[in-house]
């Protein structure tokens, strides 16, 4: 999953699949064919066909209904809100990821593995629970509910709640990409820079950052894909106010439940496109990183 792992793999592996031709390491042709056929069939049924379905359904009635679904005011509002929520959440997690990776990868301290586990925690928490915890904190009957109401501060069913839920769900993404790579790279480069008189920030921006730029970019891309596509957590805190607090995935749900399938899949196709772009970027970044 992590780019760092992939880079290491590419370096270690001789050249993709083993084609050294040593017959002792190959199965009989019939077995090979059967395994490949099963693997391909499985991937086509579970991954390729659903992806094709999205675009087929979106364009089923031609280009105009497709475009009409995308410029409709509620859809535009949902797209705008999704972009705003993702921009804020990804920036916050980018900053956090860099700071956490510096502390964890460049220094040794007791309790480090516990800290890494805690950062990973949101990966294994159900999105619905991620939303629920913020309802319990900021809802009308929540711990801070009375205080927020007295001061007329709106967190739930508004932008801050959407951002909080999204930040929680995407919390580990950037840190998780950076930590293994920065640990692998060690501290010699930074120590050299410091001993040559560079300041801490200069060292970070001129030495550390260039060393991890591809992994960082990939972490941001994954974080962004997840932030824009988050459904369960956001669904709990959004309040589903049409044109106001509906993000794209929530808008898709409403359209789908109203049997407006073409419109639902039209909006869904944008998110599917984002997923494809993310995957293509991943492949390109891996090649770039392996080449360096």
């Amino acid at each position: 999953m992590a780019l760092a792992n992939t880079i290491l793999q590419r370096r270690n592996a001789r050249a993709g699949p083993h084609e050294d031709g040593d017959e002792v390491r190959r199965e009989p042709a019939a077995v090979r064919f059967l395994i490949v056929a099963l693997a391909v069939a499985f991937l086509v049924v579970f991954l390729v066909l659903p992806l094709i379905t999205v675009f087929q359904q979106a364009f089923m009635h031609g280009l105009w209904p497709y475009l009409a679904a995308l410029v409709e005011p509620d859809a535009v509002a949902a797209i705008r809100l999704t972009l705003v929520v993702a921009a804020i959440s990804v920036s916050l997690n980018l900053l956090f990821g860099l700071v956490a990776a510096w502390a964890i990868a460049k220094f040794d301290f007791p309790g480090k593995s516990v800290l890494i586990t805690l950062i990973d925690l949101p990966f294994s928490v159900s999105p619905v629970i991620a939303g629920l915890v913020f309802v319990l904190l900021f809802g009308a009957q929540g711990y801070f509910g009375a205080f927020l109401q007295a001061h007329d501060i709106q967190i739930l069913f508004a932008l801050p709640g959407l951002v909080l839920a999204t930040v929680f769900v995407t919390f580990p993404f950037v840190a998780r990409e950076l930590i293994p790579l920065m640990q692998e790279q060690g501290t010699q480069d930074e120590e050299a820079a410091i001993s040559l008189g560079a300041s801490g920030l200069q060292t970070f921006f001129r030495v550390t950052l260039p060393n991890v730029k591809w992994a960082l970019l990939y972490g941001v891309l994954l974080c962004n894909a997840r932030a824009m596509g988050e459904f369960g957590a956001v669904s709990v805190v959004s309040g589903h106010i049409r044109g106001e607090t509906n993000t794209m995935p929530l808008h898709i749900e409403i359209l789908y439940n109203e049997y407006q399938f073409t419109a639902a899949f039209a909006v869904a196709s944008l998110l599917a496109l984002l997923a494809l772009v993310t995957l293509i970027a991943k492949v390109l970044l891996e090649r770039r990183a392996a080449a360096e």
Partner: peptide
């Protein structure tokens, strides 16, 4: 196919849901 294996990581769950249902 190797690249496509990551689709479930990148495709929003709601999109996957309506696609699989259809």
């Amino acid at each position: 196919l190797d690249a496509i294996v990551d689709i479930p990581f990148a495709l929003p769950t709601a999109v996957a849901g309506i696609a699989l249902t259809t």
